[in-house]
């Protein structure tokens, strides 16, 4: 039993890594008053470009860098549309997602699957510090030991974080106070996109080691939900990610049990999504959206 528990916790940390990265990225973005529905697509495109580059160059690190560059490029497109032009954020985000997915699928077909193949690499392996819990990928360690505290520091203690929160709450006042709203929102979107890209790259370069159609499988949407569930607080967001991942890892273990062999596995697969919706329903009422959420800023 202890062994199974350890397995579940260890698997949860792996499952939580891309979710935490993407959700933290979305949190930084939304704190500046911008909703990025491109999260699913940025993860998807980065996952593909990451592994495609790694497969071509033979270097996982180069793959990760390429994935981050892809995320930054996508973030810039999104920032130009929503911040500079003030395009509807729902439409721009969803459009970006569809663009990244259709581009990746087309490129995947051109580069790898036209003759029936599949792109795969020898992925990063977990470091084992003893026991299933501490057998994790370096990105998982980096996420929870470095990026999480760094993000907390960025949002709560740094000058940039203060600016981001200011333009997200009241851009007019921030502008009067001498904060460059456009530049701050671009920065927040860019940081957020890099996080999302890292989350996507983790899936292909470490977790799976190959790319298949629909590889992100709604993780970006779950990340969006986690931000609301977490009420834009990093601690609560991570708790939400932990809940989702525990349910997910738990259902993976349940599927191994003989008494559950009759339960359709799809019900178990749907459980984590349902858990997020129920979590939102229970805790999501009267959530404190950033003051300027979804509102483009134009000087008059």
């Amino acid at each position: 039993m202890i062994e199974v528990t350890q397995e579940i916790i260890g698997a949860s940390l792996r499952i939580a890594t891309p979710l935490a990265l993407a959700a933290l990225g979305e949190l930084v973005t939304e704190k500046s008053g911008v909703l990025n529905l491109g999260v699913e697509g940025i993860m998807y495109g980065s996952a593909f470009v990451g592994i495609a580059t790694a497969a071509q160059t033979g270097s996982l690190t180069t793959g990760l860098i390429a994935a981050l560059v892809t995320g930054a490029a996508a973030g810039l497109i999104f920032a130009f549309l929503t911040v500079t032009l003030g395009v509807n954020q729902h439409v721009a985000g969803l459009g970006l997602t569809l663009f990244m997915i259709s581009f990746s699928n087309s490129a995947n077909r051109i580069m790898f699957t036209a003759d029936g193949g599949q792109v795969s690499v020898d992925p990063w392996r977990p470091f084992n510090f003893g026991g299933p819990i501490f057998s994790q990928y370096w990105i998982t360690y980096a996420t929870f030991l470095i990026i999480v505290p760094l993000t907390w520091w960025l949002m709560r203690r740094s000058g940039l974080g203060l600016k981001i929160r200011a333009v997200g709450e009241n851009p007019e006042a921030a502008d009067v106070a001498g904060i460059n709203v456009t530049k701050t929102r671009y920065t927040a979107i860019l940081i957020g996109s890099l996080y999302m890209a890292a989350g996507g790259a983790f899936i292909t370069l470490a977790f799976v080691g190959s790319f298949t159609i629909n590889i992100i499988n709604g993780r970006g949407w779950v990340a969006l939900a986690l931000v609301i569930f977490g009420r834009w607080k990093i601690g609560r967001l991570l708790a939400g990610a932990a809940l989702f991942s525990l349910v997910n890892a738990g259902q993976l273990q349940l599927r191994l049990l003989p008494s559950f062999s009759d339960v359709p596995f799809e019900i178990l697969l749907a459980l984590p999504y349902l858990a997020v919706i129920v979590g939102l329903a229970v805790s999501g009422r009267n959530v404190p959206y950033p003051g300027a959420y979804l509102k483009p800023y134009k000087r008059h």
Binding site: L35, L37, H90, N217, G218, W221, V222, L224, A225, I228, E266, I267, L269, A270, Y273, L274, V276, I277, L280, A281, G284, R285, N286, V287, Y289
Partner: peptide
């Protein structure tokens, strides 16, 4: 409850496919 419909409608898409 005032819960953003974007996220909930999105999350119900994969559930429908799983059903």
């Amino acid at each position: 409850l005032g819960i953003d419909e974007v996220v909930t409608t999105l999350l119900l898409n994969p559930i429908a496919l799983l059903i």
